[in-house]
Amino acid sequence: MKQISENVWQVCAGVFPANSYLWTGPVPGGAIVVDTGLDPEPILAGLKVLDVRPAAIFCTHGHFDHIGSASVLQNAFGSDVYLHAADAKTAKVANFLMMAFKIPAKLKLPRFSLLQDEVGETRIGEVSVRHRLVPGHSPGSCLIEIGGTCFSGDTLYSGGLGLSKIPGEDPDVLRSSLRKVWDTIDPATLVCPGHGRTAIFADIRAHNTELVEFMAARNEGMAA
């Protein structure tokens, strides 16, 4: 487990590694988990080290490497697991995708609390968790924002692009989503992506040239 900021820790493990985050603050149990990789053990170990329990679990999107351990954590702690409604089907095909990609794991889906609307806030204890729907990587991908931290899943990386050619992905829609939120994110925001390193948003704007070029390109459906 790696400490990212005063109250954010990152866990990355499993047969298909993805970042999970433990956020600590004034919520019942002391923590919120964002994304749950395929391997629950390092997340459980991290919660134990921090001596916290997750009041809630937010999944940035429904791909298997981001929801994999959610049911284990839900069963252990009784936490609500939040996912945008537009990715409910994405989650349902998780085991099919893992089979197709020959990933030796199988997951059980949690009981999801489905987030609605393009933008919304969920009150967890004294904390407001904001979601912004940013489809493209998947239909229901979201930015999950708590205070000055943005958990960006596979929509916004510190380096490179979140394109994988998995059905449900739409590069043009991703481009539109990124353009829509690009100037609304505070440059000082700590961005915690689903893969790769965390970064301050100002640094992503300055250094993620692949992403900037992708955003500047024309949509495939448009005439040259």
């Binding site: 099919f96 995708l97 089979m99 197709a100 990609f101 020959k102 050619k165 998995i166 059905p167």
Partner: peptide, 18 residues
């Protein structure tokens, strides 16, 4: 379509089934 002797790669299989 799927298994050791299939020549269809993972992404193609997913695409076909969808």
């Amino acid at each position: 379509l799927f298994g050791g002797e299939s020549t269809i790669d993972s992404l193609s299989l997913v695409s076909v089934i969808v």
